[in-house]
């Protein structure tokens, strides 16, 4: 891999008057012990748009994503410096209720991780813990979220069966349904289709596109075609820095940075 000057960057500015910003980071650094994995990343994420984070493996895109809802808190020796602004609050600051925050910034992981409970319980588990007891409300929640995740037709007759009996693609869509059952503002997805076959992948992509109307989506992907197909904005990560951030078509067709061009044209990665 070539070494590119990290000063050589292009970060598109979004005018707050024209674009509503749902989440943004300011000079975000992530440290694992003494080594620095993310070297100060500042990015805005527009509301009801899909932003793709691309880059080679080890570029820090997943690490960055996981710090957005502070999932890195749980890894011993990890430190995150800098600001994560959400609703005018720095959610990386002290005194922020992390659990409450995660209800609004949901996450779907690389490998499908349904609970070993029934399909129905997978979706209603967290809402129930949050005090929704009404059976009718829960039933409705299960139906709407499964419909949104394009899974309803396949599982509506087996809601009480174990989620582990579903196929990988179905499990991943169940995880999406489970995440949106919390009615989050923002959905973080960490390579949600990388463990899936092409057909399941395209179903998941369709699901994401249809979710865009209600959710701000940030997705990490190593699949450039996927980023091109579904995202509105793309950020290119390289060795812990964002070298280019722009609307997706620009990144893929008219990249302004040499490193980006080399990556999207498949010269490394």
């Amino acid at each position: 891999m070539q070494n590119y000057a990290s000063e050589d960057r292009y970060i598109k500015e979004l005018d707050p008057k024209k674009h509503e910003i749902a989440l943004s980071t300011e000079d975000l650094h992530v440290f694992y012990g003494t080594s620095e994995a993310i070297h100060g990343v500042s990015l805005p994420f527009e509301r009801f748009k899909i932003t793709a984070l691309i880059g080679a493996s080890g570029s820090g895109k997943s690490t960055y994503l996981r710090s957005l809802n502070r999932m890195n808190d749980n890894i011993e020796g990890t430190r995150v410096d800098g600001k994560i602004m959400y609703r005018d609050i720095d959610i990386n600051g002290k005194g922020v209720n992390v659990y409450e925050m995660r209800k609004h910034i949901g996450m779907v992981f690389q490998r499908p991780n349904p609970f070993s409970k029934s399909i129905y319980d997978n979706i209603t588990f967290a809402p129930k813990r949050n005090g929704i007891k009404n059976k009718k409300v829960l039933d409705e929640l299960v139906e709407t979220t499964l419909k949104q995740a394009a899974l309803w037709d396949q599982v509506k007759d087996q809601l009480d069966q174990s989620a582990l009996a579903l196929s990988g693609g179905q499990q991943q869509r169940l995880c999406i349904a489970r995440a949106i059952a919390m009615k989050p503002d923002i959905l973080l997805l960490d390579e949600p289709a990388s463990a899936l076959d092409p057909i399941s992948t395209s179903t998941v992509e369709d699901t994401l596109l249809s979710l865009k109307d209600h959710y701000t989506i940030i997705i990490v992907t190593h699949n450039m075609q996927q980023a091109g197909r579904i995202s509105d904005y793309t950020a290119f990560f390289h060795l812990g820095n964002v070298l280019e951030y722009d609307i997706t078509s620009n990144v893929f067709q008219r990249p302004k940075i040499q490193a980006t061009e080399d990556y999207v044209s498949g010269r490394f990665g």
Partner: peptide, 16 residues
């Protein structure tokens, strides 16, 4: 924006 959510983000909850 919704102030209720903002408030909740800064308060302790059942989970805390």
């Amino acid at each position: 924006m919704n102030d209720e959510i903002k408030e909740k983000l800064l308060k302790k909850s059942r989970a805390t």
